[in-house]
């Protein structure tokens, strides 16, 4: 579904991505893992067209995304920090997003998360009055709203209460089963172990490896993912 070919990105002198090659297929949950400032967020932003790469290319469904916006119809995105127009009420925000995304699908919205997070109860509240956690729920609900084939979740459970985290994880499972590609960044290895099939490990702008979790475990001979990774990286 998504192919990264020699993807490069420089911010001034800092080389954030040093030629990443990666192929991500449907029907799985990929965790982007790596230390801070390793280039995970840059990678995601490249996928979303928010950052324009200096070199290499990204193919989405076999087509180069350069200069294209239409492929974004097929992507849902949950940012790390969701901020919305201060004076907009939540219900209005959902209405607006549906309106802006109308062309994507014929009113076949996925409102499961809105219901699961009980967001309707807060539809009358302006966005500025909401807590960070609630805004995260809004972001998550928006990511799945258009029933996209690819969903990108940047640190999805950070800031969510345990119950909401659980709901979101179940949702991720469900969507994977529906044959979608979900890309998740996370620092919490237990969580990664719980939701992801495979891990793309990124260090200093390079993809160190891209393996399924079971493979990592068997390679290292550890059964906890954290330890397994640690073991693998020591080599």
């Amino acid at each position: 579904m998504i192919q990264l070919e020699g993807l490069q990105k420089k911010y001034g002198k800092i080389q954030a991505l040093k030629g990443i090659n990666l192929t991500l297929n449907l029907n799985q949950v990929v965790a982007l893992v790596g230390p801070n400032a390793s280039g995970k967020t840059t990678l995601i932003k490249c996928l979303l067209g928010m950052v324009i790469p200096d070199g290499g290319r990204i193919l989405f469904g076999g087509k180069d995304i350069k200069g294209d916006v239409q492929y974004k119809r097929r992507i849902g995105y949950m940012p790390q920090i969701g901020r919305y127009p201060d004076n907009m009420r939540m219900g209005y925000l959902f209405g607006m997003m549906k309106d802006l995304g109308k062309t994507r699908i014929q009113d076949n919205f996925d409102e499961e998360l809105i219901a699961a997070f009980k967001l309707e109860e807060m539809f009358g509240k302006p966005m500025r009055s909401l807590s960070g956690g609630t805004r995260q729920k809004v972001s998550a609900a928006l990511a799945f709203l258009f029933n996209p084939e690819v969903v990108i979740l940047d640190e999805p459970t950070a800031g969510l209460d345990p119950l909401a985290s659980e709901i979101l994880k179940q949702k991720i499972h469900k969507e994977k089963k529906a044959g979608k590609l979900l890309i998740v960044t996370s620092h919490i290895m237990s969580e990664v172990e719980e939701i992801a099939n495979s891990i793309a490990y990124i260090v200093e702008g390079e993809a160190l490896f891209y393996k399924s979790i079971s493979e990592i475990k068997s390679d290292s001979g550890e059964d906890r993912l954290g330890k397994a990774l640690f073991h693998l990286l020591q080599k």
Binding site: G49, Y71, K72, R73, Y77
Partner: peptide, 16 residues
Amino acid sequence: FNSYEFIELLVAQPLK
């Protein structure tokens, strides 16, 4: 700047 994240979100949508 207050709308920065919102603009980001809009950029992630299929909008020019």
